[in-house]
Design a protein around this nucleic acid. Sequence first.
DNA 1: AAAACTTGATAACATATGTTATCGTTTGGT
DNA 2: ACCAAACGATAACATATGTTATCAAGTTTT
Lengths: 194, 194
Amino acid sequence: MVFHFRQAFPQLNAYWDKYLPFQKRQQVAAKKILLEEGKRSQHYMFIEKGCLRAFINKDGSDKTIQFFFEQEGLSSLDSFINNVPSPFSVETIEPSVIYTMHKKHAMQMIDELSKEPWFVQTILQMTAKRQIHYMNEFASFIRDTPEQRYQNLIKKRPHLIQRVPQHYIASYLGVSTVHLSRIKSKLAKGKSRF
Amino acid sequence: MVFHFRQAFPQLNAYWDKYLPFQKRQQVAAKKILLEEGKRSQHYMFIEKGCLRAFINKDGSDKTIQFFFEQEGLSSLDSFINNVPSPFSVETIEPSVIYTMHKKHAMQMIDELSKEPWFVQTILQMTAKRQIHYMNEFASFIRDTPEQRYQNLIKKRPHLIQRVPQHYIASYLGVSTVHLSRIKSKLAKGKSRF
DNA sequence: AAAACTTGATAACATATGTTATCGTTTGGT
DNA sequence: ACCAAACGATAACATATGTTATCAAGTTTT
């Protein structure tokens, strides 16, 4: 559901460029909904600039389940492929520049790609990569404490800490905003001893 | 990493049967390791009978991250595809009957399947299905309490509750064995009022 | 510039969850 | 049949985390 495919899979670039005419480029302000939970996803999205989050409504409050940044593509996969209601919403966090491509054209691009002998391997690599990402996130919840998950974020996705408001990060880590504050202040105290 | 493909993707059956001669059938006692964390996965596994779990070692104790049952296939995907050390171990929970197919033959089967015009769509469906599964598990940790996750298990995978020892279920839910006991006794009290 | 909102820190208290220890039951091996 | 493990319940205590409320410092809107 998220991939950085231009870097990771450069063999796709020619096709991506070829289908650029079918994509719509739009500037979007911060906090604008791009896909609403319950609606069917009709478009693949690609982020030129800015950042987005996916979130689930739970008893009125919302829980962020994923963040997306520049040069990443996304869709609500289940909804996009199987035409079912999306289990989550997507909105901008910062003012962003987004390319959207209608399902129809995305499918057409895939059909065309299917003729390449290397495409099955590429798609296996791509999907394996995403699957591994989700498995790791999932395993991290079982294995790690919220504090450890926060430290992982600092290490592995420091840009995220910088750009994303803290209450979104808190729900992404599975804790309250208050508790994330506590974790931060605890870590700050630990560091300041040296 | 898990799929029930004979039911969900019957178009693959002919190929699966064709490659049966390359598979080894073996009976395995309970609690036998099939794949060890840190080793490279060389085989795809298919469960004819029995049940398995995948787990991660964390400071000496082990955390179960997934369960597998009859007619499901699995591999340590990252390890299998990218030839890196497996992040988890796999072991039998019950005495089981397992088919294993070496990577070499699995890849050959995929090459052959690639020639089918429908295969790209099938592989998209298969991988989407698995990805959606992991995303849901992940979202459930963010969204639901351990008690809700336990009730989800009861509703959606009751066979699992019956067959799997409770301490494995506890770590899978992300709680201690003691706390799962508490959850069960709380739910039992709630029910007994009627 | 004032008002309204957003973001984040902190305190006080309540609840959830982990840890350790103990016990009884079941299960597996010999 | 016996012994040793594995399994699961429960109690007591410790720690982690949630909730609510308050305050302060930005931002954005008007």
